[in-house]
């Protein structure tokens, strides 16, 4: 059996890669993909805990995460499309009508 810590480590590495991706990427759609990556890393953690705790809750939680991810994807891509219609770029740096 593969040890729990391996799964947790992999999941943490994937989560970290996602976070770093959000920081360094500029393209809104890729940024969004990095967030999906983070959610997936969490899913791995949940399933691993579910297996090692002998508790089904973790897997059910993953269902909810998947549903939410689907809803988020639909709305997020709709937002991206509506922005793209109005200004042909997805570079978040150029989305600067509103300054920091």
């Amino acid at each position: 059996m593969v040890p729990l810590s391996w799964y947790l480590a992999l999941s943490a590495v994937l989560f970290t890669i996602g976070v770093v991706g959000v920081l360094i990427q500029r393209n809104a759609i890729v940024l969004f993909m990095c967030i999906e990556l983070m959610l997936n890393a969490v899913n791995l953690t949940l399933v691993a805990f579910s297996r090692f705790l002998g508790d089904v809750t973790g897997q059910l939680f993953v269902f909810m995460v998947m549903t939410v991810a689907a809803a988020e994807a639909a709305v997020g891509l709709a937002i991206i499309i509506s922005l793209f219609r109005n200004r042909e770029t997805l570079n978040v740096d150029e989305a600067d009508l509103l300054k920091l």
């Binding site: 969004f32 937002i79 509506s82 922005l83 109005n86 200004r87 978040v92 989305a95 009508l97 509103l98």
Partner: peptide, 14 residues
Amino acid sequence: YDVRANESSLKYFL
């Protein structure tokens, strides 16, 4: 139709 609203929405979303 308003770019500011689009951007606001995108930022909020991300």
